[in-house]
Design a protein around this nucleic acid. Structure first.
Lengths: 215, 215
DNA sequence: TGAGTTCCTATACATTTGTATAATCGAAGC
DNA sequence: GCTTCGATTATACAAATGTATAGGAACTCA
């Protein structure tokens, strides 16, 4: 788990802007990737560590807002900071609704950009960590056989072994075996632990919660 | 649990704007509250059911953005839709960062406002439901004695009765009694159920999770 | 056909958990 | 001083859970 240096990906069709942003960001200690268009970005590899995008709203070909929409559906969604010289309010509102970190109008204070980038990197780090943990959970979950997954769902919903046995039409002993396998394979240290894993995995096909009635 | 009619609270210092918005919103079936300033709003009662705010960014006395900041710290935070005739991009960005639903510039399409209000009400309904459930949980949790809360924390962290007994320096029987009381008082239907309640309550003073190592 | 996997079951124990009843002790409140 | 409440413990069961060993049936795949 090596600490990856944070990256900033700049997309701007103006070489002058790219250069000056590149100097600023490199001097701030970031790894910088300078690109001239969205298509270049889509072809490029994604950096390993935390990263964020700095892009102009208006770009030749695909615009910044279009890219944002596209990335929203993709798996690897990067924090986005918009920069523009000719923006308007509806544009900025759409960008922010889309989850943008910041929307800066030229000219802007360098510190505002750096602050936004710092926030973007923090979010991306959190997202990376979250995804790492989730991927790990999924790997474990995929080692479960279909039956074990069924049993796990029942177990984390709070049902007893004998109830699960009745639900599945098998003996209680069988349920115990599956249950033990589930705990081992998922590396759950306890039942609450397993329940939390299931919640993370959104494993809730069978979940009869109590309705929370008041006396 | 009667379904409350959704309310729209309009704050605008222009009586003409208030009237026209009032007509529009009432004809759309909303309960409407028309106010001329933030101070009026702060004095007024909060509506019972789902509600959202429609306010001008610029207002005499306290501005719309200031109100947003203030409400962010308060317990009852209402979804906000900003309307303005003289806004700029930084203003809209700040509003959206602050969690505003929408930021409309005059003149705007009535449908855009109605759409935003619908979204605001949906969010407020979700928030109300969430708060109701949380309040209910807290009520139950407050019926627990200090010792019972301690035991609950250990239980949901996955520790066994005998371990908890050792941790607390008491006998296992005692732990069982407390544990049974916790389940009863919290109306937990199962251990996973109790664990989820504890997570909701952010009850995590004692939680030794497994470190999730990879092989 | 044979190996491997999954699912199922059983026996046999060891542990753990839940519950009911009953009792002691100390602190807080009336 | 008496009562109430919280915390504690014990006895005595009842029920649930975990584990180990062992085996059978069905299915897939090479």
């Amino acid at each position: 788990m090596v600490e990856q240096p944070p990256t900033v990906i700049v997309i701007d069709d103006d070489p002058g802007v790219r250069d000056s942003l590149g100097r600023l960001l490199r001097s701030a200690g970031f790894r910088v990737s300078l690109l001239g268009s969205v298509s270049e970005f889509l072809k490029a590899d994604r950096p390993e560590g935390p990263a964020c995008l700095v892009l102009d709203v208006r770009l030749p070909g695909q615009s910044g807002l279009e890219l944002q929409r596209e990335l929203a559906g993709a798996k690897r969604q990067l924090p986005i900071i918009f920069i523009t010289g000719h923006g308007d309010i509806p544009m900025s509102v759409q960008a922010m609704k889309g989850g943008a970190i910041e929307f800066l109008t030229k000219p802007f204070r360098e510190q505002d950009l750096l602050d936004a980038i710092q926030l973007g990197h923090a979010r991306d780090r959190a997202r990376l960590e979250q995804e790492r943990a989730m991927a790990e959970l999924k790997v474990r979950f995929e080692t479960l056989t279909p039956r074990e997954r069924e049993v796990m769902a029942f177990v984390v919903s709070g049902r007893l072994n004998k109830q699960i046995a009745a639900d599945l039409g098998v003996s209680e002993i069988t349920v115990k075996v599956h249950r033990g396998q589930v705990m081992r394979k998922m590396r759950a240290s306890s039942l609450p632990d397993l329940a939390r894993m299931a919640d993370q995995l959104q494993l809730t096909p069978t979940k009869p919660r109590n309705p929370g009635r008041v006396a």
